[in-house]
């Protein structure tokens, strides 16, 4: 197997190195990748969407169909892990040995976590809400929100984290986030425009088309954040406890 692998990577390496000669050098402003679509987005997107963060504008508006399915990928992974891990009868040996019971040993960790978690969540909301103007957006904010719950589960245990955020709601919200995203697009469809054409919201909300684009993006980013939050947490609790949802790591 090792020999086959070496042959494969040798062939691939030679191919890729030969191809690299042909590519534009690093940071070349005239490379084809940086002039065609890129310049259009840089020059026009603020006029067309009123969002200064161009990455957000491209992500959530020009290519928002991609982003919808990106959210679906996350959702799909969450359901997949659920389906795989949570079916076995409990007679198999545990993958992760139970942690030693040392009462009081985690006190520093737990106090620190109690202080950190609200800060993290507040910051995450800022990242979601300010994604139009600064680095950030639904995925980033959602991951930070998820991390705050994971921190809780790490410093206490999974049962405690699940007490705060019931598993029923985890599943409900993870589908709900994608549904929110799709619903924003479907309303456009219903109003006679194409799917995800946020301009259709202008009449409904009584705002200009430009503002409708901005609002539409905010809406879908919130949907993304909800799904990412839930699935990150769900992936952690499932993987850390082998699907048993008990104490975990």
């Amino acid at each position: 197997m090792k020999k086959t692998a070496l042959i494969i990577i040798a062939v691939l390496g030679i191919l890729l190195l030969r191809a690299a000669e042909d590519l534009p050098s690093w940071g070349d402003p005239q490379s084809p990748a940086s002039v065609h679509l890129s310049n259009y987005y840089l020059e026009e997107s603020y006029e067309e969407t009123s969002v200064p963060n161009i990455v957000t504008a491209v992500l959530a508006d020009y290519r928002s169909y991609d982003t919808l399915f990106e959210t679906v990928v996350i959702f799909c992974a969450g359901i997949t892990v659920l389906l795989i891990l949570r079916r076995t009868p409990r007679r198999w040996p545990k993958v992760i040995s139970p942690r030693p019971n040392r009462p009081g040993a985690d006190i520093i960790l737990q106090t620190a976590a109690r202080l950190l978690v609200p800060m993290m969540q507040l910051f995450a909301l800022y990242v979601v809400a300010h994604g139009h103007h600064s680095p950030g957006g639904g995925f980033q904010g959602g991951v930070i929100l998820g991390a705050s719950l994971i921190l809780l589960a790490l410093s206490y245990d999974i049962e405690m984290a699940l007490h705060r955020f019931k598993e029923k709601f985890v599943l409900l919200f993870s589908a709900g986030g994608v549904l929110l995203y799709a619903a924003i697009g479907l309303v456009c469809l219903y109003l006679g425009r194409n799917f995800l054409a946020y301009g259709a919201w202008a009449d409904l909300l009584g705002i200009s088309e430009l503002a409708a684009h901005s609002h539409g993006m905010l809406g879908v980013e919130i949907g993304v954040a909800i799904t990412v939050l839930c699935i990150m947490f769900s992936l952690y609790i499932d993987l850390a406890s082998g699907g048993d949802l008990d104490e975990g790591l």
């Binding site: 987005y41 508006d61 020009y62 290519r63 169909y65 425009r193 194409n194 799917f195 995800l196």
Partner: peptide, 13 residues
């Protein structure tokens, strides 16, 4: 052709 989000290709999907 169906333009998603009413964006003309190649700018949209």
């Amino acid at each position: 052709h169906y333009f998603l989000g009413d964006w003309q290709p190649p700018y949209g999907i």
